[in-house]
């Protein structure tokens, strides 16, 4: 597979979950694990441009796919507009849900470029945050959408 634009190949046990492959084999520890029931979304990454929960995908299932993690979002020019919007709007506190939340939010805007507040809230239904009460996360996503990201 390709991870953040780089080809990666490895022999792993068939049961290796994508999230553990990313974290333990590739050292991409920005993708977090917050639950064991596909509920929290902390492990959200993009597979071929779409948000998926990497705790519920075998690494083997995405062989050949393009995977993007939070580490692949910012460029040499700085933060991705969504990351910047989260910072500007104080859309994060402890930061643990944040990589997954940002990946879910960028995927959401790809599918709904100009969402309403309700669409943002529903679009993030699979990502749990315990710190922010979501207010500033929603604000950040709307700001990013408004900013033409």
């Amino acid at each position: 597979m390709t991870v953040n634009g780089q080809p990666r190949a490895a022999e792993v046990e068939p049961r290796t979950l994508l999230v553990h492959y990313l974290r333990d084999s590739l050292g991409l520890t920005g993708t977090n694990i917050g639950c064991d029931t596909s509920s929290c979304g902390a492990c959200t990454v993009h597979v071929d441009g779409e948000a998926v929960k990497s705790c519920t995908v075998l690494a083997a299932q995405v062989a050949g796919a393009e995977v993007t993690t939070i580490e692949g979002l910012a460029t040499a020019d700085g933060l991705h507009p969504m990351q910047q919007a989260f910072m500007d709007c104080h859309g994060l506190q402890c930061g643990f849900c944040t990589p997954g939340m940002v990946m879910a939010a960028t995927s959401l805007l790809r599918e709904h470029p100009n969402p309403t507040e309700d669409e943002v809230r529903l679009g993030l239904e699979g990502n749990l945050c315990r710190c922010t009460g979501y207010h500033n996360i929603v604000k950040a996503v709307l700001a990013c959408a408004g900013g033409g990201a």
């Binding site: 991409l28 520890t29 993690t69 990351q83 910072m87 994060l92 930061g95």
Partner: peptide, 12 residues
């Protein structure tokens, strides 16, 4: 604190 948390650089 935010940039390191937003980019996955922070270490838990």
């Amino acid at each position: 604190e935010d940039p390191r948390l937003l980019t996955g650089e922070a270490k838990y």
